[in-house]
Amino acid sequence: MTARKFTRALLASAAIALGAGAAWAQDYSFKLHHFLGAQTPSHTEMLVPWAAAVEEASGGRVEIEIFPAMTLGGRPPELINQVRDGVVDMVWTVNGYTPGLFPRSEVMELPFVYRNDPGAANLALHQMFESDLKDDYKGVEVMFLHVHSGNGIVMRDTAVHSPDDLKGKKMRIPTRTGAWTLEALGAVPVAMPVPDLPQALSKGVVDGALIPFEIIPSLKLQNQTEDLIELADRTRLGTIVFQLSMNKARWDSLPADIQQAFRDASGPEWLSELGHVWRATEDLGVDIATSAGSTHVMLTEDETEAFRTVLEPVVDRWVEEVGAKGIDGAALVDKARRLISENGSM
């Protein structure tokens, strides 16, 4: 099945779930909690189709109710403990909201390890999970890991063409690796979940942010930012790793055929398709921002090389930091870069 056919199948599954749900006798009900709104692409283009695909693969025995925007309570950084403690069945969350808790997976967040291909990075994460990353995920059963299109630069009123243009600027980022990137560029990192960004921009708490452009419309950032910047060939300043995970005890209680329904909906074909989803929504975000008057800049190769030179020590810093925990960071960097390259050429 091609990626596009897979998308159509997901949409068909969603329609079946809506039309025939009342006739199905669900044996297994799950609550999925996450931090973004019900109108965001993450909800409508990823979580809803994925849940529908699981329900269909289970033959109607599974029902997944999705609770967006922290409607079950708490703050985004609390999601991982909510699922580990069994407060909810499943969560979709940003690994970096709990700094240092998922150190191995941070390899995909590093600048110039991840460049510009979310589908290739998703597949690399999948291929590395059992052999290299699994120890990060105690207490949960990971359905899938993925990245977004990468950290572009959005600024209230500052054009950025070199690292010097970011010196002294207060910049939002949710992850510690992103904070290291900003520090290397001379900026001041400000950690916050992305739903807090609009208010932070409007009040001048931050001058800009490292975010994917797809989030601009749902947060209405086109009204508060004048400049969108990415590096040559759409290269980004790293990315963010997300997880969709289930409480481990709940997973272990499920029969093999129900577990397989979740696996069938979460495999490589889905992860590749997510890359297309993120890219499409990214383009939409750029279009909406530029239509509202923002300037979209793609840096030249020479300008990009200046960023690469400044940011290579961030990779070295991470390798040293995780090495103190007994993790071979250099090997993870090499493997991640190789797998991204291989998957990107497929």
Rank of each mutant, 00 (worst) to 15 (best):
T7N: 06
R8T: 10
S13C: 05
I16W: 15
G21Y: 05
A22G: 04
A22C: 02
A23G: 08
W24F: 13
W24R: 10
W24C: 04
D27E: 15
Y28W: 00
F30A: 06
F30E: 07
L36T: 12
L47R: 00
L47N: 01
A52V: 12
A53Q: 05
E55K: 09
S58V: 11
I64M: 09
I64A: 10
A69D: 15
M70L: 13
L72C: 08
R75L: 12
P77I: 09
I80M: 11
N81P: 00
Q82W: 05
Q82D: 07
Q82S: 08
V83H: 02
R84S: 00
W92L: 08
N95R: 11
G96D: 12
P99V: 02
P103W: 06
R104A: 08
M108L: 14
Y114Q: 03
H126I: 02
H126Q: 09
K134F: 03
K138S: 09
H148Q: 03
G150P: 03
V154Y: 10
D157H: 13
H161I: 14
P163I: 10
L166R: 07
M171H: 08
T177K: 06
G178W: 10
L182C: 06
E183M: 09
V190N: 06
A191E: 10
A191I: 05
M192D: 08
Q199C: 05
L201P: 03
G204M: 13
V205C: 00
D207K: 04
G208R: 12
I211Q: 03
I211N: 10
E214S: 10
I215N: 11
I216N: 08
K220M: 09
E226P: 00
R234M: 07
T235E: 11
R236K: 14
I240W: 09
A249I: 11
A256R: 13
D257I: 01
Q259H: 01
R263A: 07
R263D: 08
R263E: 10
E269F: 02
W270S: 02
L271K: 07
L274C: 03
R279F: 04
T281N: 15
L284D: 07
G285N: 09
T290P: 06
T290S: 01
A292Y: 05
T295I: 13
E303G: 07
E305L: 13
T309F: 03
T309V: 13
L311C: 12
W318M: 12
V319F: 00
V322Q: 01
G323K: 12
K325T: 11
G326K: 09
V333A: 05
R337T: 14
R338W: 06
G344S: 11
